[in-house]
């Protein structure tokens, strides 16, 4: 290339333009973030933040966690405590049992995927399939298969008393009261304006039942963010609970999703039971007294994987809170800190 002697202004300008443009192009290429490293760059108002509710005041947590029991299940659905504090877990197409130290003691194969279970003091197992109940002996032999509850049925929980079986049917928003032979006695929790029953409201199938002291039936009413108690004839007794993201309330669109009655030894001499409740959305397990007042947090959201749904819980005779974690597929064991 021939170069002119005199420096032409245009030449200089062009050279500068080319240099600047090339440099700018290089800068732009280096500034590219095609891999999303820099995040969305959206302002605060565009970001959903529930982090503040995912932290629990440590002073409220009165429980500590022990070593969990791995269930070995792919899908873990329901948990119950049997004689000698044996832990029974329903999931996949089987029931697995562990002794109080977490050693596997039994495995019962089932024909259908179980949703829930309850175990009698003598070891008889009642397990809820989606639309019917099956009864198994302690040895794992099927004793009975009750007829289907109906096509819409989604059985989500079973609770037992000495002579009654309570089956929560989330599909029809009702608790079915059976005798031990499988005869339907009563339907509990249906809308009844005269008796002041607003009806069970569920959005996801998650009605849970528990029996207190062999006399009172506790039912979750997740769509109304409360728990309700009934006498066995279906008369409403008490209810408590309110919607709140705060630890004192039940969070989200429908909670609690599971309950258990705390054994008497834990409580002051009160005529009513204290309940352990489990929630989804902000997965947390709490203990509330008979007025619904928060007494203790067993495990806050930080103890569970985000998005955990489908906790089930129970409590054994020693007061250990056993939480079935469907994400970890394990039974998480919580004991009081001062024990």
């Amino acid at each position: 290339m021939k170069k002119r002697r005199g420096i032409s202004t245009t030449g200089v300008i062009i050279a500068v333009v080319i240099t600047v443009a090339t440099a700018a192009a290089v800068v732009v290429i280096l500034r590219f973030d095609p891999t999303g490293k820099g995040g969305s760059g959206l302002g605060e108002q565009f970001v959903y933040d529930s982090e503040q509710y995912r932290k629990t005041d440590p002073n409220l947590i009165h429980y500590k966690e022990l070593k969990p029991i791995e269930t070995g299940l792919k899908v873990a659905r329901g948990i119950a405590v049997g004689p000698d504090d044996a832990v029974y877990v329903a999931g996949d197409r089987k029931i697995v049992a562990f002794d109080r130290d977490g050693k596997s003691i039994a495995e019962i194969a089932l024909g259908d995927p179980p949703q829930c279970l309850a175990v009698e003091a003598d070891g008889t197992i009642y397990t809820g399939m989606i639309d019917h109940v099956e009864v198994y002996s302690k040895g794992g032999r099927r004793i009975a298969k009750w007829p289907s509850v109906g096509d819409d049925a989604i059985i989500t929980s079973i609770a037992l008393s000495d002579s009654d079986v309570f089956v929560a049917d989330s599909g029809n928003s009702v608790v079915l009261h059976y005798d031990k032979a499988g005869r339907l006695v009563n339907r509990i929790g249906q809308v009844d304006k005269e008796r002041g029953i607003p009806g069970l409201l569920v959005r996801k199938p998650c009605i849970d039942v528990a029996v207190e002291n062999g006399k009172v039936l506790w039912v979750t009413n997740p769509g109304r963010w409360r728990v309700e108690s009934y006498s066995f004839d279906g008369a409403p007794k008490r209810h408590w609970g309110r919607q709140s993201q705060e630890i004192e309330g039940f969070c989200g669109c429908c909670n609690p999703t599971c309950i258990a009655v705390l054994p008497r030894l834990r409580q002051a001499q009160s005529s009513h039971g204290w309940l352990i409740t489990g929630e989804k959305g902000l997965p947390r397990v709490k203990i509330c007294d008979e007025t619904g007042c928060l007494r203790s947090v067993v495990a806050g959201p930080e103890a569970f994987a985000k998005g955990t749904v489908g906790l089930d819980l129970t409590v054994d005779s020693r007061g250990r809170v056993l939480v079935l974690d469907p994400v970890a597929k394990a039974v998480r064991v919580f004991v009081k800190k001062d024990d």
Binding site: G39, E44, V47, Y48, D49, S50, E51, V75, P113, Q115, I130, D152, I154, S170, G171, R203, K204, P205, A305, K306, G307, T308, V309, G310, P326, V327
Partner: peptide, 23 residues
């Protein structure tokens, strides 16, 4: 800012149960 991850596992957990929509 951490953002929330939800529902990855959840769906597999509750997948086998059909549920009627709002009435």
């Amino acid at each position: 800012m951490r953002r929330l991850i939800q529902f990855l596992i959840v769906l597999t957990v509750s997948a086998s149960v059909a549920f009627a929509a709002a009435k």
